[in-house]
Computed example of a mutant assay.
Amino acid sequence: MVLLNLTIENVTKQFGDKLAVNDVSFELTAGVYGFLGANGAGKTTLMRMLVTLINPTSGRILFDGKDVEVLGDEYRDNLGYLPQDIGLYKNFSAEKYLMYISAIKGIEQQAAKKKIDELLEVVNLSEHKKRKVGKFSGGMKQRLGIAQALLNDPKVLVVDEPTAGLDPKERIRFRNLLSSISKERIVLLSTHIVSDIEFIAKEIIVFKAGQLIQKDKPEELLENIRGFIWTVNVSEHEVIGFQNKYKVSNIISNQNKVALRIISESKPDDRAIEASPNLEDLYLYYFDQEVAQ
Protein backbone atom coordinates (compact mmCIF):
# COMPACT_ATOMS: atom_id res chain seq x y z
CA MET A 1 0.00 0.00 0.00
CA VAL A 2 1.47 3.33 -1.10
CA LEU A 3 1.33 6.03 1.56
CA LEU A 4 0.13 9.31 0.06
CA ASN A 5 -1.03 12.47 1.72
CA LEU A 6 -2.49 15.67 0.29
CA THR A 7 -3.29 18.30 2.90
CA ILE A 8 -5.36 21.42 2.28
CA GLU A 9 -4.50 23.80 5.10
CA ASN A 10 -6.64 26.93 5.71
CA VAL A 11 -6.92 27.59 1.99
CA THR A 12 -8.75 30.73 0.87
CA LYS A 13 -9.17 32.11 -2.66
CA GLN A 14 -10.57 35.55 -3.35
CA PHE A 15 -11.33 37.12 -6.73
CA GLY A 16 -11.87 40.83 -6.12
CA ASP A 17 -14.84 41.05 -3.76
CA LYS A 18 -15.84 37.41 -4.32
CA LEU A 19 -14.70 34.85 -1.76
CA ALA A 20 -14.70 31.68 -3.87
CA VAL A 21 -13.05 29.40 -1.28
CA ASN A 22 -13.18 30.31 2.39
CA ASP A 23 -10.64 28.93 4.90
CA VAL A 24 -10.91 25.28 3.83
CA SER A 25 -8.91 22.48 5.51
CA PHE A 26 -8.99 18.72 4.93
CA GLU A 27 -6.70 15.77 4.25
CA LEU A 28 -6.69 13.12 1.52
CA THR A 29 -4.97 9.73 1.32
CA ALA A 30 -5.13 6.99 -1.36
CA GLY A 31 -8.64 6.26 -2.65
CA VAL A 32 -11.58 7.96 -4.34
CA TYR A 33 -13.10 11.09 -2.82
CA GLY A 34 -16.39 12.49 -4.05
CA PHE A 35 -16.47 16.28 -4.07
CA LEU A 36 -20.16 17.11 -3.88
CA GLY A 37 -21.64 20.55 -4.34
CA ALA A 38 -23.97 22.70 -6.40
CA ASN A 39 -22.75 24.68 -9.40
CA GLY A 40 -20.88 27.76 -8.21
CA ALA A 41 -20.00 26.24 -4.83
CA GLY A 42 -16.26 26.79 -5.39
CA LYS A 43 -15.37 23.19 -6.27
CA THR A 44 -13.63 24.03 -9.55
CA THR A 45 -11.69 26.89 -7.95
CA LEU A 46 -10.36 24.58 -5.25
CA MET A 47 -9.48 21.91 -7.80
CA ARG A 48 -7.62 24.45 -9.92
CA MET A 49 -5.58 25.31 -6.84
CA LEU A 50 -4.91 21.62 -6.20
CA VAL A 51 -3.43 21.27 -9.69
CA THR A 52 -1.51 24.59 -9.34
CA LEU A 53 -3.32 26.42 -12.16
CA ILE A 54 -4.00 29.18 -9.64
CA ASN A 55 -2.49 29.91 -6.23
CA PRO A 56 -4.36 30.37 -2.95
CA THR A 57 -4.86 33.89 -1.66
CA SER A 58 -3.88 32.47 1.72
CA GLY A 59 -3.23 29.05 3.24
CA ARG A 60 -1.23 26.26 1.63
CA ILE A 61 -1.44 22.83 0.02
CA LEU A 62 0.98 20.12 1.14
CA PHE A 63 1.95 16.96 -0.74
CA ASP A 64 3.49 14.39 1.61
CA GLY A 65 4.16 17.22 4.04
CA LYS A 66 5.83 19.61 1.58
CA ASP A 67 4.35 22.85 0.23
CA VAL A 68 3.35 22.31 -3.42
CA GLU A 69 4.43 25.85 -4.33
CA VAL A 70 7.93 25.00 -3.12
CA LEU A 71 7.88 21.57 -4.81
CA GLY A 72 6.87 23.12 -8.14
CA ASP A 73 7.48 20.72 -11.04
CA GLU A 74 8.26 17.89 -8.63
CA TYR A 75 4.62 18.08 -7.49
CA ARG A 76 3.23 18.64 -10.99
CA ASP A 77 5.03 15.49 -12.16
CA ASN A 78 2.76 13.60 -9.76
CA LEU A 79 -0.44 15.27 -11.01
CA GLY A 80 -3.11 14.14 -13.46
CA TYR A 81 -5.97 16.47 -14.33
CA LEU A 82 -9.16 16.05 -16.33
CA PRO A 83 -10.90 19.44 -16.44
CA GLN A 84 -14.58 19.98 -17.05
CA ASP A 85 -13.93 20.92 -20.68
CA ILE A 86 -10.94 19.07 -22.06
CA GLY A 87 -9.39 20.47 -25.24
CA LEU A 88 -9.10 17.64 -27.76
CA TYR A 89 -7.73 18.00 -31.29
CA LYS A 90 -10.53 16.56 -33.42
CA ASN A 91 -8.30 15.85 -36.42
CA PHE A 92 -5.79 13.85 -34.34
CA SER A 93 -6.20 10.14 -33.85
CA ALA A 94 -6.40 8.97 -30.23
CA GLU A 95 -2.87 7.59 -30.48
CA LYS A 96 -1.45 10.77 -32.05
CA TYR A 97 -3.18 12.95 -29.46
CA LEU A 98 -1.68 10.93 -26.58
CA MET A 99 1.77 11.06 -28.21
CA TYR A 100 1.42 14.84 -28.45
CA ILE A 101 0.44 15.16 -24.77
CA SER A 102 3.31 12.82 -23.82
CA ALA A 103 5.77 15.11 -25.57
CA ILE A 104 4.37 18.12 -23.67
CA LYS A 105 4.77 16.19 -20.42
CA GLY A 106 8.38 15.38 -21.33
CA ILE A 107 7.90 11.60 -21.59
CA GLU A 108 10.53 9.84 -23.73
CA GLN A 109 9.08 8.59 -27.04
CA GLN A 110 9.59 4.84 -26.60
CA ALA A 111 8.31 4.91 -23.04
CA ALA A 112 5.34 6.98 -24.22
CA LYS A 113 4.40 4.47 -26.93
CA LYS A 114 4.40 1.62 -24.42
CA LYS A 115 2.41 3.63 -21.86
CA ILE A 116 -0.14 4.74 -24.48
CA ASP A 117 -0.79 1.15 -25.55
CA GLU A 118 -1.31 0.18 -21.91
CA LEU A 119 -3.68 3.08 -21.21
CA LEU A 120 -5.73 2.61 -24.37
CA GLU A 121 -6.30 -0.94 -23.16
CA VAL A 122 -7.24 0.28 -19.67
CA VAL A 123 -9.80 2.78 -21.03
CA ASN A 124 -11.10 0.32 -23.63
CA LEU A 125 -10.04 2.36 -26.68
CA SER A 126 -7.40 0.09 -28.22
CA GLU A 127 -9.63 -0.71 -31.19
CA HIS A 128 -10.09 3.00 -31.87
CA LYS A 129 -6.53 4.28 -31.50
CA LYS A 130 -6.26 5.21 -35.20
CA ARG A 131 -9.69 6.83 -35.27
CA LYS A 132 -9.98 10.62 -35.29
CA VAL A 133 -11.02 12.07 -31.96
CA GLY A 134 -13.65 14.22 -33.68
CA LYS A 135 -15.64 11.06 -34.42
CA PHE A 136 -15.62 9.88 -30.79
CA SER A 137 -18.74 9.77 -28.62
CA GLY A 138 -18.83 11.84 -25.43
CA GLY A 139 -17.96 8.82 -23.32
CA MET A 140 -15.03 7.89 -25.55
CA LYS A 141 -13.68 11.44 -25.31
CA GLN A 142 -13.89 11.30 -21.51
CA ARG A 143 -12.06 7.96 -21.44
CA LEU A 144 -9.39 9.45 -23.71
CA GLY A 145 -9.22 12.37 -21.27
CA ILE A 146 -8.54 9.97 -18.40
CA ALA A 147 -5.83 8.28 -20.49
CA GLN A 148 -4.05 11.61 -21.02
CA ALA A 149 -4.35 12.40 -17.31
CA LEU A 150 -2.69 9.05 -16.47
CA LEU A 151 0.21 9.28 -18.94
CA ASN A 152 2.70 10.32 -16.26
CA ASP A 153 1.37 7.71 -13.78
CA PRO A 154 0.19 10.42 -11.35
CA LYS A 155 -0.20 9.95 -7.65
CA VAL A 156 -2.90 12.63 -7.50
CA LEU A 157 -5.71 12.51 -10.08
CA VAL A 158 -8.24 15.35 -10.18
CA VAL A 159 -11.34 15.06 -12.35
CA ASP A 160 -13.91 17.85 -12.62
CA GLU A 161 -17.52 16.99 -13.59
CA PRO A 162 -16.36 14.12 -15.84
CA THR A 163 -19.74 12.50 -16.54
CA ALA A 164 -21.88 15.52 -17.40
CA GLY A 165 -23.67 14.73 -20.65
CA LEU A 166 -22.81 11.03 -20.67
CA ASP A 167 -25.47 8.36 -20.94
CA PRO A 168 -25.99 6.06 -17.90
CA LYS A 169 -23.97 3.18 -19.38
CA GLU A 170 -20.98 5.43 -20.10
CA ARG A 171 -21.21 6.98 -16.63
CA ILE A 172 -21.11 3.57 -14.95
CA ARG A 173 -18.14 2.51 -17.09
CA PHE A 174 -16.33 5.74 -16.29
CA ARG A 175 -16.77 5.60 -12.52
CA ASN A 176 -15.78 1.92 -12.47
CA LEU A 177 -12.59 2.92 -14.28
CA LEU A 178 -11.85 5.57 -11.64
CA SER A 179 -12.46 3.06 -8.88
CA SER A 180 -10.15 0.48 -10.47
CA ILE A 181 -7.18 2.88 -10.67
CA SER A 182 -7.56 4.40 -7.19
CA LYS A 183 -5.76 1.83 -5.05
CA GLU A 184 -2.40 3.63 -5.18
CA ARG A 185 -3.64 7.12 -6.05
CA ILE A 186 -5.59 9.97 -4.55
CA VAL A 187 -8.57 10.44 -6.87
CA LEU A 188 -10.72 13.52 -6.33
CA LEU A 189 -13.94 13.43 -8.33
CA SER A 190 -15.95 16.63 -8.39
CA THR A 191 -19.62 16.33 -9.31
CA HIS A 192 -23.17 17.41 -8.59
CA ILE A 193 -24.47 14.05 -9.84
CA VAL A 194 -24.81 11.99 -6.69
CA SER A 195 -24.97 8.58 -8.39
CA ASP A 196 -21.42 9.11 -9.70
CA ILE A 197 -19.98 8.80 -6.19
CA GLU A 198 -22.55 6.70 -4.39
CA PHE A 199 -20.71 3.38 -4.74
CA ILE A 200 -17.05 4.30 -5.24
CA ALA A 201 -16.17 7.13 -2.83
CA LYS A 202 -14.43 6.19 0.41
CA GLU A 203 -15.36 9.66 1.66
CA ILE A 204 -17.57 12.47 0.43
CA ILE A 205 -16.57 16.10 0.76
CA VAL A 206 -19.64 18.35 0.87
CA PHE A 207 -18.85 21.87 -0.34
CA LYS A 208 -21.23 24.84 -0.20
CA ALA A 209 -20.69 28.55 -0.87
CA GLY A 210 -16.92 28.12 -0.77
CA GLN A 211 -16.90 26.28 2.54
CA LEU A 212 -16.39 22.72 3.69
CA ILE A 213 -19.69 21.55 5.19
CA GLN A 214 -18.99 17.84 5.80
CA LYS A 215 -16.29 15.25 5.06
CA ASP A 216 -17.01 11.65 6.00
CA LYS A 217 -17.80 8.16 4.77
CA PRO A 218 -21.08 8.02 2.79
CA GLU A 219 -22.78 5.88 5.43
CA GLU A 220 -21.81 8.31 8.20
CA LEU A 221 -23.11 11.30 6.25
CA LEU A 222 -26.40 9.50 5.68
CA GLU A 223 -26.62 8.69 9.38
CA ASN A 224 -26.42 12.45 10.07
CA ILE A 225 -29.73 13.02 8.26
CA ARG A 226 -31.52 9.93 9.55
CA GLY A 227 -34.87 11.00 10.94
CA PHE A 228 -35.16 13.85 8.40
CA ILE A 229 -36.55 11.77 5.49
CA TRP A 230 -40.27 10.99 5.22
CA THR A 231 -42.80 9.46 2.89
CA VAL A 232 -46.44 10.46 2.96
CA ASN A 233 -49.45 9.61 0.80
CA VAL A 234 -51.60 12.65 0.04
CA SER A 235 -54.41 13.62 -2.30
CA GLU A 236 -53.58 15.44 -5.54
CA HIS A 237 -54.87 18.79 -4.31
CA GLU A 238 -52.49 18.66 -1.30
CA VAL A 239 -49.29 18.29 -3.37
CA ILE A 240 -48.68 22.00 -4.06
CA GLY A 241 -49.11 22.86 -0.38
CA PHE A 242 -46.44 20.33 0.61
CA GLN A 243 -44.11 21.56 -2.15
CA ASN A 244 -44.45 25.14 -0.94
CA LYS A 245 -43.69 24.20 2.65
CA TYR A 246 -41.11 21.37 2.37
CA LYS A 247 -38.30 20.02 0.22
CA VAL A 248 -40.04 17.34 -1.85
CA SER A 249 -37.52 15.04 -3.54
CA ASN A 250 -39.93 12.66 -5.25
CA ILE A 251 -43.56 12.56 -6.38
CA ILE A 252 -45.23 9.32 -7.49
CA SER A 253 -48.87 9.25 -8.53
CA ASN A 254 -50.71 6.03 -7.69
CA GLN A 255 -54.42 5.82 -8.51
CA ASN A 256 -56.15 8.41 -6.31
CA LYS A 257 -53.14 9.09 -4.05
CA VAL A 258 -49.77 10.76 -4.53
CA ALA A 259 -46.69 9.48 -2.68
CA LEU A 260 -44.32 12.26 -1.63
CA ARG A 261 -40.73 11.91 -0.37
CA ILE A 262 -40.01 14.83 1.91
CA ILE A 263 -36.85 16.16 3.56
CA SER A 264 -37.72 17.80 6.87
CA GLU A 265 -36.09 17.89 10.31
CA SER A 266 -39.54 17.58 11.87
CA LYS A 267 -42.39 15.25 10.96
CA PRO A 268 -44.24 17.03 8.14
CA ASP A 269 -47.62 15.39 8.65
CA ASP A 270 -49.33 12.92 11.00
CA ARG A 271 -49.55 10.47 8.09
CA ALA A 272 -45.80 10.66 7.36
CA ILE A 273 -43.59 7.59 7.80
CA GLU A 274 -39.83 7.83 8.37
CA ALA A 275 -37.70 6.55 5.45
CA SER A 276 -34.04 5.54 5.08
CA PRO A 277 -31.91 8.37 3.65
CA ASN A 278 -29.94 8.13 0.39
CA LEU A 279 -27.37 10.41 -1.26
CA GLU A 280 -30.00 12.26 -3.26
CA ASP A 281 -31.63 13.17 0.04
CA LEU A 282 -28.26 14.32 1.35
CA TYR A 283 -27.74 16.51 -1.70
CA LEU A 284 -31.15 18.12 -1.38
CA TYR A 285 -30.71 18.57 2.36
CA TYR A 286 -27.71 20.82 1.68
CA PHE A 287 -28.54 22.19 -1.75
CA ASP A 288 -32.25 22.95 -1.83
CA GLN A 289 -31.92 25.20 -4.89
CA GLU A 290 -30.55 22.35 -7.01
CA VAL A 291 -32.20 19.20 -8.30
CA ALA A 292 -30.14 16.03 -7.76
CA GLN A 293 -29.63 13.86 -10.83
Score class of each variant (00 low, 15 high):
residue 1 M to W: 11
residue 1 M to V: 11
residue 2 V to N: 12
residue 4 L to Q: 13
residue 10 N to W: 09
residue 13 K to P: 08
residue 14 Q to L: 10
residue 15 F to L: 14
residue 15 F to W: 15
residue 20 A to D: 07
residue 22 N to Y: 03
residue 22 N to F: 06
residue 25 S to T: 14
residue 26 F to R: 01
residue 26 F to S: 03
residue 31 G to S: 06
residue 31 G to Q: 12
residue 33 Y to I: 08
residue 36 L to C: 03
residue 37 G to T: 08
residue 37 G to Q: 07
residue 39 N to T: 11
residue 39 N to L: 10
residue 44 T to Y: 01
residue 44 T to W: 02
residue 45 T to V: 14
residue 47 M to Q: 06
residue 48 R to C: 05
residue 49 M to P: 10
residue 50 L to N: 06
residue 50 L to I: 15
residue 52 T to I: 08
residue 53 L to F: 12
residue 60 R to V: 10
residue 61 I to P: 02
residue 62 L to Y: 14
residue 64 D to F: 02
residue 66 K to A: 15
residue 69 E to W: 12
residue 70 V to Q: 11
residue 71 L to G: 09
residue 74 E to H: 07
residue 75 Y to C: 01
residue 76 R to M: 06
residue 77 D to I: 05
residue 78 N to H: 14
residue 80 G to L: 15
residue 82 L to A: 02
residue 83 P to W: 12
residue 83 P to V: 06
residue 86 I to K: 04
residue 87 G to V: 15
residue 88 L to A: 00
residue 88 L to S: 00
residue 89 Y to R: 00
residue 90 K to T: 06
residue 92 F to T: 05
residue 95 E to W: 15
residue 95 E to G: 01
residue 96 K to M: 14
residue 98 L to P: 00
residue 105 K to N: 06
residue 106 G to L: 10
residue 107 I to Y: 09
residue 108 E to H: 09
residue 108 E to T: 06
residue 110 Q to H: 12
residue 116 I to T: 02
residue 117 D to K: 08
residue 118 E to C: 04
residue 118 E to P: 02
residue 120 L to A: 09
residue 121 E to K: 06
residue 124 N to D: 13
residue 129 K to W: 06
residue 129 K to R: 13
residue 130 K to Y: 05
residue 132 K to M: 12
residue 134 G to V: 12
residue 137 S to N: 09
residue 139 G to H: 00
residue 140 M to K: 04
residue 144 L to S: 01
residue 148 Q to R: 13
residue 148 Q to P: 08
residue 149 A to V: 04
residue 150 L to S: 02
residue 158 V to A: 01
residue 161 E to W: 02
residue 162 P to L: 00
residue 164 A to G: 05
residue 165 G to L: 01
residue 166 L to I: 13
residue 166 L to A: 07
residue 171 R to M: 03
residue 172 I to Q: 15
residue 172 I to R: 15
residue 173 R to Q: 07
residue 173 R to S: 11
residue 174 F to H: 00
residue 175 R to D: 05
residue 177 L to N: 02
residue 179 S to M: 06
residue 181 I to C: 01
residue 185 R to C: 09
residue 186 I to E: 07
residue 191 T to R: 00
residue 193 I to G: 00
residue 193 I to W: 03
residue 196 D to T: 01
residue 197 I to G: 00
residue 198 E to W: 09
residue 199 F to W: 14
residue 205 I to Q: 02
residue 208 K to H: 09
residue 208 K to Y: 11
residue 209 A to Q: 13
residue 211 Q to L: 11
residue 213 I to G: 01
residue 215 K to L: 14
residue 215 K to W: 13
residue 220 E to W: 05
residue 220 E to C: 00
residue 222 L to I: 04
residue 223 E to H: 07
residue 225 I to M: 04
residue 225 I to E: 09
residue 226 R to H: 08
residue 229 I to T: 10
residue 231 T to L: 08
residue 231 T to W: 11
residue 231 T to D: 11
residue 235 S to G: 15
residue 237 H to C: 11
residue 238 E to P: 03
residue 238 E to R: 05
residue 239 V to W: 09
residue 241 G to S: 14
residue 242 F to M: 02
residue 248 V to T: 10
residue 253 S to D: 09
residue 253 S to R: 15
residue 256 N to R: 09
residue 257 K to F: 13
residue 259 A to G: 02
residue 259 A to S: 10
residue 260 L to S: 08
residue 260 L to A: 10
residue 261 R to Y: 07
residue 262 I to K: 00
residue 269 D to G: 03
residue 271 R to W: 14
residue 272 A to R: 11
residue 273 I to C: 02
residue 276 S to I: 12
residue 279 L to D: 04
residue 283 Y to V: 10
residue 283 Y to D: 10
residue 284 L to V: 11
residue 290 E to R: 06
